[in-house]
Design a protein around this nucleic acid. Sequence first.
DNA 1: CCCTGATTCGC
DNA 2: GCGAATCAGG
Length: 176
Amino acid sequence: MNWTDERVELLKKLWSEGLSASQIAAQLGGVSRNAVIGKVHRLKLSGRGKTSTTQTRSKKVSTNSAARNGNVHSGASQTVVRTSVTKSVGATALQTEYAVEAVAHTVIKPAADVVVPISRRLSLLQLSERTCKWPIGDPLNEDFHFCGNDSGESSPYCTYHSKLAFQPVSERRRAR
DNA sequence: CCCTGATTCGC
DNA sequence: GCGAATCAGG
């Protein structure tokens, strides 16, 4: 993947908005976070002017089932949470359902007491045959992405999103 | 251990 | 110029 003008522009935009290198890499697709950082430096825009909005990764996934019962398609979902998808399970579930409508995805409502697996945050271009295509977040927002969990088989959904069972994200990190 | 950006250096 | 490896840090 090469740095086309569009990709560079997007990089500049996302970087200035405070997204982390890894998030930007996920948005762009086809590049590592190192590549993004390297590019950022070459472009001499490492300063980033504003104080970073970064590091909001929240702790453990606490399952708040109550927030997810009931019909989230009732319009209430649109007023719900703008917070980062990673902040809470309740918010994640609601945003997911909201996005589902827009993408015309087959809706499978998550069961009440299921732990939501960590998203790999894949961009549209990164989806493959065996990555979960469950949309997460507001489709009109930068933060929008796809679950991306590897199903481990030829299913387009991860275990969670197809079978409503928990599937830990298999090694996301290289062993060192 | 998770993550972050910064730097180096072979390609 | 590019980006993996590495470093330093939260």
